[in-house]
């Protein structure tokens, strides 16, 4: 299976780079399995709990794309911390064109 490299910046500033993230998995699954702080994924990737919220690096926004209506609705529940580049990482499926992706983990509060 092919892999890509992704980088997540935790709320505390620590930078986590994952060099063997499997294509086809979601960014949430990869981050959670590496214990990235702040990526909980309580609902298991169902786009329902907003505990895997990230800010996509501006350089990657176009490639990652915008949330769909259902994801928008879930993000709206945590609008105290959303920004224009907010995404739920469970809805970002890793693909070869996302090799090098960089995001910041959003705070819970």
């Amino acid at each position: 299976m092919s892999t890509v490299t992704v980088t997540l910046v935790q709320v505390d500033g620590e930078v986590i780079t994952i060099e063997d993230a499997p294509v086809g998995e979601s960014l949430m699954e990869v981050a959670r399995s590496r214990g990235v702080d702040g990526i909980l994924g309580d609902c298991g990737g169902g786009c329902a709990c907003a505990t895997c919220h990230v800010y996509v690096d501006p350089a990657w926004e176009a490639k990652v794309g915008k949330p769909d209506d259902i994801e928008e609705m879930t993000l709206d529940m945590v609008s105290h911390v959303t920004r224009d580049n907010s995404r739920l990482s469970c809805q970002i499926k890793l693909a070869p064109e996302l090799d090098g992706l960089r995001v910041n983990v959003a705070p819970a509060d």
């Binding site: 609902c43 298991g44 990737g45 169902g46 786009c47 329902a48 259902i70 879930t74």
Partner: peptide, 10 residues
């Protein structure tokens, strides 16, 4: 994991 697949928001 099995149960989660049945109940996603989508």
């Amino acid at each position: 994991k099995l149960m989660e697949q049945a109940f996603t928001a989508h």
